[in-house]
Design a protein around this nucleic acid. Structure first.
Lengths: 227, 227, 227, 227
DNA sequence: GATGAATGAGTATTCATTCAT
DNA sequence: TATGAATGAATACTCATTCAT
């Protein structure tokens, strides 16, 4: 955070974005600042002034880089979804993984996304729920939707392979994918609430246990007998 | 929505609450109006004026029935949690149910709570996530927390019985309870997002399938062999 | 104060003012309640509801006895001025008092008015200063003005007698009267501020000392020599 | 009043504060506007909208210059006290003044403060009396209190010198100081009420006469005989 | 480009007053 | 008469957005 402060201009001295690179840097500084503050205070609780002041910019500058408050939120949302997508792709890209191992890796990746990119997680999965101005804003949702579908397709592909290999039971793969994802989400949300001191279990353990149960349910126990 | 309008007064013609019964009715009208609007626009996005105007009351009237904006939210929250609690208690109260049947009934009850009391569901489970002002307001959370713990204990008791009977695998019951609950939440949240047109699966089916998978994972497959 | 509470009606049971006497009693209860609350919270800080609730009346009842909020203030103001007038008249009515003794008695009476009728003192002398809505309200001021003039005439008469008797220096009696009164007011105001911990002197002592100095200034020191 | 209006902006045409000097000017415009309105309508009777509209500013602008309504009042209070302090210090700073001449000059200075800075006089001496919210607000009072003590100490020093020189009677100087001050206040308050047409004497004359009487009471008439 | 002063609509809450019962 | 529910205008303060410099 403190390092960001350097980016701000000395008041009185006007700094020009000398290049596209410079502009990009400022835009990123604003994005980071907003990410931090949205996480801390929510969307409504964060004012433009907070976002700019936090990094030594003036209010007006915000509008040079973003059309309005919603836009910066949208961009952060898209960025978050992209990060998650990359993390999951990376997790299942190792050669020689069995489908079950891949499923496990996906779970682990989602958990890491939550743990290591909490700001983005909040924006992607939590913050926009129950905030009508977002859920009603189609422009906001369409890109997010697309990325979610991509993600789910990725998981489904793993399930299909697992079934083909006989490792997993034959199930409706699209349904199972959705269920699996929903479950992971739900368990992590437990921790979001857990912050509030509600449950008191180590979330990581919980997450593992939950996945284990689900995988147990998916594993084809008759497989061994068949072969 | 339209039915509520009847309760409102004709502007110019002033209606007085004639009795305690009448007062109760007006209070309920305000609660319903708020429930509807919180769901549509979130807490911050809903103004007192919206709540009153929606049912033809004047702004000042709100404060005859509620101390402030937070109070009406708290009341709705408590009511929602109570409804859910009752639905789940009722679901597992039938004699002769096996633990697994009870688990299934709990899932079904939660789904019905979501489907039939969408406004309350939003407030109890969704709205308060990601609204910084609530997650930091301990006074707001404590009662909700208590009710959630109650609910989880109810489910845990079923799991314990299932394990004792040998119907379910031996697992850490508190963890499993949390995982189970989180999963149900997560699946329903898929549908909350689904409203947005994201996935396109019948949520009820999805929910059933998800639970099935989990139960599969919990069922003691060796039970038969033991006997 | 508690004794006043009895006057309130049992809700549901409608009480009728059986007689003019009954009405008068209720009006007085309201006046006393208002006096108490104006002193504690100021005019603006006192709401009609506070006044009525304080004695178990309902809000609407207030308007059966007073046209509006200002009226009750006006009445209290007049009552206070009357009490003060009576106290001063009484103080100088004892036979055989020298004019100087009478002046002293007037000072003492004013101090007692302040000390024993603080509520009225506040309304008569303090509260209405700096509250434009009163100082601009001629209807409010005229009666008060009249009573003040009466008071001042009373004091002037004493001065005149003192001068005639050679006890006091020959001065413009109307001016001296005003000055004398202003001085007393000023000293008491010191105590009003003193409540705030500003000065830290016993007000009664201060008051006496102040008067002494003034009387000293008025006394005809050459009197003895003349005679 | 009319001169202030010039500072205001033409509605529709937006004027920016170009410099620190410009900002200072706007802040002063707001202070003057508030001073005027507080005097006319009291603290509670003056709304932020009145203050800004009076000089053609928009409501929000107020909060660019002051944290809240109380702050502007506090600043005016402090400014007023400072002006008074300066006037009194200046009045007694001339070389060769006898203590009695100094006392007279103090009286005259206080009168001039009242006559020439009526707005500040109202705030410093009058407005905060009887406004519950101030008399209970210690933060508000403390600075004012300090300045009042300073003032009183200034006067006391003069009295002490007068007594030492034998010009004045030996009295408790702190008490006499308070009494003297209170008297001056009281006489001026007569005029405050006088505005209301109550008395009808030239206040300046009255003030002089009042002081004369007091000084008469303080003068050591035996001095000449002693020497 | 960058600034930050200015705007003004919006929000929760209070309260004197009215009036149907 | 008495009640107290209802009203709605008023108020301090906030904040996204604009725009002159």
């Amino acid at each position: 955070m403190t390092s960001l402060k350097i980016i701000g201009n000395i008041p009185g001295k006007k700094t020009r974005a000398r290049s596209a690179r410079d502009k990009e840097q400022k835009k990123n500084a604003l994005l980071e600042s907003a990410l931090e503050l949205f996480t801390q205070h929510g969307y409504q609780g964060t004012s433009i002034e907070m976002i700019t002041e936090n990094i030594g910019f003036s209010t007006g500058t915000f509008y040079l880089y973003f059309k309005n408050k919603v836009e910066i939120y949208r961009i952060l949302s898209a960025k978050g979804a992209e990060i998650l997508q990359k993390m999951i792709e990376e997790a299942i890209s190792w050669p020689g993984m069995t489908p079950l191992a891949q499923l496990s890796a996906i779970g682990s990746a989602y958990y890491r996304f939550y743990a290591e990119h909490r700001g983005y997680y909040d924006i992607v999965s939590v913050l926009n729920i129950g905030q009508a101005e977002f859920t009603k804003d189609r422009k906001m949702l369409k890109p997010l939707e697309k990325q979610t579908i991509n993600l789910l397709r990725l998981i489904e592909a793993v399930l299909i392979k697992g079934i083909e290999k006989g490792e997993l039971k034959t199930v409706d793969t699209w349904k199972a994918t959705n269920a699996l994802w929903g479950m992971m989400d739900g368990i992590i949300l437990l921790d979001v609430r857990n912050n509030l001191g509600m449950i008191g279990n180590s979330i990581e353990e919980l997450f593992k246990q939950g996945l284990e149960v689900v995988f147990n349910g998916l594993i084809n126990h008759e497989k061994g007998e068949k072969e």
